[in-house]
């Protein structure tokens, strides 16, 4: 029980990932696939951000630190959350919105040509 509770974030991210992956592969509607893709990507973000969490730490912005003249006060690493996963995930979010845009554009172009968003109908027209 403790094993499950201590890592609940990780269990949830796996669940989200499975939902997203299932939607990407099994859904017939293209927009649904794209939604699955977004869920899949956010699941990874959950994972990374969970890595960055630190018990008893504050947000990764150094308090009262304006300019490098006042750095006499030593900064303790334990006080602040791990910033690296946050940075990585900023990048990942932006990348995912880029992918989302392109995927939706392709969906629209497909709809314009085949007048359908259902995969099987499109494949039938291609045949």
């Amino acid at each position: 029980m403790e094993y499950i509770l201590a890592k609940y974030n990780y269990w949830i991210y796996i669940l989200l990932m499975m939902i997203g992956l299932y939607a990407m592969i099994a859904k017939n509607n293209l927009v649904k696939k794209v939604i699955g893709m977004s869920i899949f990507q956010t699941a990874i973000i959950v994972f990374y951000v969970s890595i960055g969490a630190k018990r008893g730490a504050s947000i990764p912005i150094i308090a009262h630190g304006h300019g490098h003249d006042v750095i006499a006060t030593a900064v303790s690493a334990a006080e602040y959350a791990n910033p690296l996963p946050h940075v990585l995930m900023l990048t990942a979010i932006v990348v995912s919105v880029g992918t989302l845009g392109v995927a939706l554009a392709v969906c629209l172009a497909i709809y314009r040509r085949y007048n359908s968003l259902e995969e099987d109908e499109i494949l039938e027209q291609l045949r």
Partner: peptide, 27 residues
């Protein structure tokens, strides 16, 4: 277009799996 859409879906799965693997290494 359809080929490209499939590529987007599978390419994203591939890249995401890679990212996840890097996450595991990182953790």
């Amino acid at each position: 277009l359809v080929a490209s859409f499939n590529y987007i879906i599978l390419g994203t799965i591939g890249a995401s799996l890679y990212l996840l693997g890097v996450g595991h290494l990182y953790i």
